[in-house]
């Protein structure tokens, strides 16, 4: 299980600062932050600790289990973006 960033994300990156496992990308120090559409959580790395959800100023991060059907799409979106990044890296 993992947390998921929703499309309302504004790239504030407060979540990046608190993540204990650095699974949120792109971090402000990483390439691609300036042009990123939104940030995403790598579900393979996420440890479900909830720190990001607490830190998010606009409540744009939710537990995977709590996604409404309409938002389920963001689960795959986060995973896809994570996968794309790992392929580039």
């Amino acid at each position: 299980m993992a947390y998921v960033i929703l499309g309302t994300c504004i790239n504030d990156a407060a979540c990046v600062d608190v993540c204990p496992v650095a699974c949120i990308h792109p971090a402000p120090a990483e390439a691609g932050f300036a042009t990123a559409d939104m940030l995403y959580i790598d579900p393979q790395i996420c440890i479900d600790c909830n720190a990001c959800a607490e830190a998010c100023p606009i409540n744009a991060i939710v537990r995977e289990q709590d996604l409404t059907p309409k938002l389920l799409r963001y689960k795959t979106l986060n995973a896809e973006m994570a996968l794309a990044r790992s392929k580039v890296a």
Partner: peptide
């Protein structure tokens, strides 16, 4: 145990 890892450990 490792899933409770947090910033304290980090």
């Amino acid at each position: 145990s490792w899933r409770d890892f947090c910033r304290k450990g980090k």
